[in-house]
Every structure is written in C-alpha cells, then in structure tokens.
Nucleic acid binder design. Sequence first.
DNA 1: GCTGATAGTCGAACCGATTCGGTAGACGGT
DNA 2: ACCGTCTACCGAATCGGTTCGACTATCAGC
Lengths: 337, 337
Amino acid sequence: MNIGEIASRAGVSRSTVSYALSGKRSVSDATRKRIQDVIDELGYRPNAAARALKEGRTRTIGLVIPPASRRLTHMQLGFVASVVEAAARADLDVLLSPSGGDHDRSFERLLSGGRVDGVILMEIRLEDSRVRRLQNAKLPFVGIGHTARAHEMCWIDVDYATVINQCVHHLADLGHTRIALVNRSVELMAAGYGPGHRARDGFTAALAQRGIQGIDLECGDDAAAGLVCATRLLREHPDVTAIATINEAALPGIQRGLEEAGLNVPGDFSITGVVGRTWAEEFRPPLTAADVPAQDIGTQAMDLLLERIADPTTPFRNILLAPPVSLRGSTGPVRAT
Amino acid sequence: MNIGEIASRAGVSRSTVSYALSGKRSVSDATRKRIQDVIDELGYRPNAAARALKEGRTRTIGLVIPPASRRLTHMQLGFVASVVEAAARADLDVLLSPSGGDHDRSFERLLSGGRVDGVILMEIRLEDSRVRRLQNAKLPFVGIGHTARAHEMCWIDVDYATVINQCVHHLADLGHTRIALVNRSVELMAAGYGPGHRARDGFTAALAQRGIQGIDLECGDDAAAGLVCATRLLREHPDVTAIATINEAALPGIQRGLEEAGLNVPGDFSITGVVGRTWAEEFRPPLTAADVPAQDIGTQAMDLLLERIADPTTPFRNILLAPPVSLRGSTGPVRAT
DNA sequence: GCTGATAGTCGAACCGATTCGGTAGACGGT
DNA sequence: ACCGTCTACCGAATCGGTTCGACTATCAGC
C-alpha cells in the first residue's frame, strides 16, 4: 500500500495526495477529506525510506553509547534518557549504537550514507578515532565529553578536573591530609579516557595547592571492584582518611569495604563522589558529591546537535560544567586520634 | 557521492558497482579492484534509505521502552542492554521509542511504513492498545511482558505470580506470619500493568495456601517512595515482619526506612525482591531474591523476533520464566518475641 | 565450424515518496 | 472581451540504490 494506491482510490494524482498530507500547496477541502477517508480506511502510512531518500534526511539521530558489555553508570543513563527525551520532543528518532572500539560494525553503519542526520557521542577518549571518522563522514555530531584537542569538535562535558579539585579542597578543609582518588578502570585509563585523566590532573593540582599527599588508584567499574579497591587501600595505606572518586559504579563496593573494615562514614572516614543528580541521596549516608545535571547535559547536547544539523558551518561550541560539591552526610572532620 | 559517481570514475555501469559490492553476480577481479579503489579513495558508503526502499526492509528493529520520565529499573536496563547487544550481533540497528501512552508520536513513527522490520515491546499492560496497533500494522513484534490474552502475541515474561508465591512460601517457612507485598506504583497498577497484577495474584494465593495474612501495598517507583512506604507500613502494621517486593526501584528506600526504624535486616525483619541478576549482591545485606536473567530475556526476545521477521506466519511462542529464589542475607527466621 | 554454456558487463525498470513546472477553470478588474 | 491572478490539480523528474533481461566475448565439446 503506497501513495499511488491512495491516489487512485481517491481519484486524484499522487502529487495531490502528497500535497494534501504536507499542506505545501493548497488542496480543496472536499479532495482533502476524500483522501483522508481513504487513508484512514486503509491505515496508510508513508514509507519512511522513500521519504528519507527524496528529502535527504532521516529525522533520526545516532546515539553512540559504551558497548553493551559495560554497564552504564547512573550518570550515563541520565544522559541517554535525556537525549532520548529531548529527541522525542523534537520529533526525532534515536538510533542506538553500542560501540567503543574503532571497527564496530554498528558504528560503521551509523556513518553510512544518510542513515542518521547527526550523532551524539558518549564516553570519548583523549584520542578517539571515532571523532575523526565522523568528521570525515561530514556528519554533524556533538560529544558528551571531548578529546585532547578541545577546539576540533562541538561538545559538552563535566569539568572533572575542577570538580575533583573542589572535592579535595573540601576534604582538606575538614582536616584530611591523606586522601585517595578512586579513578575509573585500568582499561579505560589506558585507553585515554578523558574524565579519568582530567580528574587525576585536578587531584594532583589540589594536593599540591594544599601541600598534602594522595594515593592515586584505578578501580574497575563495578561494585565488586570497588570492594576490592577499598579493602586494599585500607590495608596498604592505613593512614588514608578520605576518598574522592569519579567512579560511580564502584561506590557501593567502596562503602561496603569501609563498612566491613569497621569504619563509620563520616565519623571515621569521608567519601566524596561525582554522580548523577538525584542519586547522591540514595546512598547511606547520603553522599557528599558534585551533582552532575545529567538531564541538562543530555538536553543541551541535543540542542547543540540540532544547531549543527540546521547549520553545519557554525563554529564549534564547547560547554564545560563544574557543578559545585553539595554537602551531605558522607564527609566530616577528620577523626581526632 | 552516489553509486553513479563511483561507476563513472571506475569506468563501469552502476549495476556493476552494485554487483561488485554485493557479490550477487560475478565481476572480474580487475574491475572489482578498480571499483574498490575508487570507493576507498572517496570513502563512499551506499545510501541506507535507497537500499531500504528497494529491498523493502531496513535492518533496524524498534525497541519500545517506558517513557523517559520514568527511570528504568536495573532489570529493564538489563533488557535494553541485552537487546541492543543481541541486535548488534545480528547486524541490526535499534531504534529507541520511549512511549507508554497511546498517541505517542514516536510510537506512531515506528508503525509508519517500513521504518523498522520488527519491534520489541516492553512494559506491557494487561490491556495494551499498542499491541493491537502493531498487529494492525502487520509488524512482527515480540513482547517482554504480555497482555491479558496470552495467545494473541509472541512474548517472553517473568512469571511474577510464581516468583512472588515462592517468596511468600520462603518467608512463611522462616516463620513469618505477617507479610507485606510492596507492589509497583498506583499509576501503573491502575493502568493494568501485568507484572503488578500477577504478583498480587501470586501473593494472595500463597497467603491462602499458608493460612497467613498479608498487606498489599502500592509504592512509587523510586527510593523516596520506598522510604515513605516502608515507614508507613511499620507505623500502621507494626506486626509485619517481612516484605516481598517486585519494586526494584523502591528497594533502597525500603531498606533505609527499616534502618531508620532501628530494625536490623535480617535479624528483625526480612526482605525478598525480584531483581536483575548481579544486582542482588550489591545490597547491604545481599538481597534474597528471584534473580531475573535479564540478559537471557533480552537475547531470547531478539531470537523470537528474528524468527518472526523471517517468517511472520509462525505460530506465536510464549516463554514464561520463574527464576528460583536465591537465598542471601536479607531473610532470616522470624525474631522470637 | 557450429552449438551451447558461462563469465562479465550494460541499460532500464523499479522501490515510494516529494516537488517543480504547467495548465484548466474561476473570478475580478477595466 | 481581455488580461492577470488564484486555486486546484496533474504529469514527470528525481532521490540512490537493486535487479532482471539482454548482449558480447570466450571457450569447450563434437
């Protein structure tokens, strides 16, 4: 069932049906009604591929998420949810591509001719070949995260350096002088994952500013790894009294590790995190954390993308967010010994 | 840049380029190489819309998820992740449609001509108009969940009735005689959300079988609601000593409520849940729960869908899973008074 | 040397929409 | 009566692939 079928049943030409639907030219009320009746009766829906072919756009955007094997953090989930919601508001569909590596077939297809009108890229590494390939494909795209060369693309990102810097200052203000940074996984760090490296930079800078010492740890992205990491930290560095982390997924495990070691939070030990807003409250005790407005970030990424799709020649815009640290129950003054 | 451009640069006809790429007719090695060189040089990729138009299929499936406003449970997230992964393995793309209601534009687009080859539908209600609309559109689809009329469609589902029944029996075995069911939200129940109603049925049946009494509660799908729900339960029904719940999202709040009331789990109070596998371990204490194999379910849903796409006339298959209750640390014998 | 099979290629039709140019008829102004 | 303007509609081209039928050249079999 195609537009020709509708046209012949309504006794008009195909172009008239098209104009009746799009309203781009005038069609008499009588004709329009006749056409609409036929359409309603047959349940006709215009073929999306044909329309996309002719119009040269698909009204679909691609969203590149971390590979399915890796569980999304709450923050990433917030990004995905808000991008999807923003796309729905703009009457756009979202094509999901779970791909991290270079030669991911799903990513290949995204690049392929006219599959999507634009792409939002998540979990970007400092050196990320996907960026170059999107540029080569001349596909408008926006990053949630950015590469080492900030100027080469349009992005929105959390300022992990500043955020971790603030966390360390907060802990130092409370008297902590031995602080550990629990970073993302060894693999991600080795792959040059931006937030991890920027967090490390912010951590090192803050330590220097306060003249205190820190332990820099990498930790797998799940609760089990967090438990192992916390346990080892307490054993190998018993003088550490606080953790700052950007590793959301490890947090429950870190907490469990502290608990199993008989440490009370915040009485004996302090933790700060960087987590999606609304999630910090779900910890016990509620987590002192930089509350990342994941909803806003997804929405703004979508806005940036729409802008680029509308006019691909606009200069790249970069948005860096450094949400302040919200004080909750997981940090306190260092215990008097 | 289209196939004609490649053809003329390689000095062959468009059809030869097509055959060189698809391999459906023989092309001499020399010609194939010449074509491939031009393609590599120009970075040509066939237009997806044109191919879809001609072939009559898009190699894309639609995944209907709950509206973006509602946060996905871990279990649902597991479904999404595994469907996406399974689709990637089958070289299919996934189009996301966040839609619960009837007249969701994103769902409309999914139905529209040839947008997707098939659909996986999540969070199905006992009466769900989307099912009828997919049937009318003659679009192959598979439900993760099912309607009141089990025979009308192809689906895979968790047997919430049996699972909750088992939970209650387990609690009763431990001596609990006042058990509360914490169900999903009032809104979902009112909308006829299947798992909620089936869980209630299983709960009622188990109570009758054991000759004990229960409290049937509805609870919003987040931690805050869980806290409120638990607090009120303890106040209004102080004789209750155990909770069985299918409400994953409320669990952290329920735990907090018990904790704030000074109740020790499992010493004073027991909890059982129905949660995505791997998540039960992340609770403190680890949650006695029916571990839903969300990964398998997504994968199997995909298999069912591929089967239906390949042959839409196959009889509907229905798969009902009742994962056994895994004993962990959140249930124990009722406290001697 | 004739026939038949096969490999390699081309041209044209086709998928289902959109859109441009054209035209018939109605209507108003002069 | 003539011209210009609008409205309402039609026909054909077009988007970029795939695929069928046809054609040529080559080679084997007899």
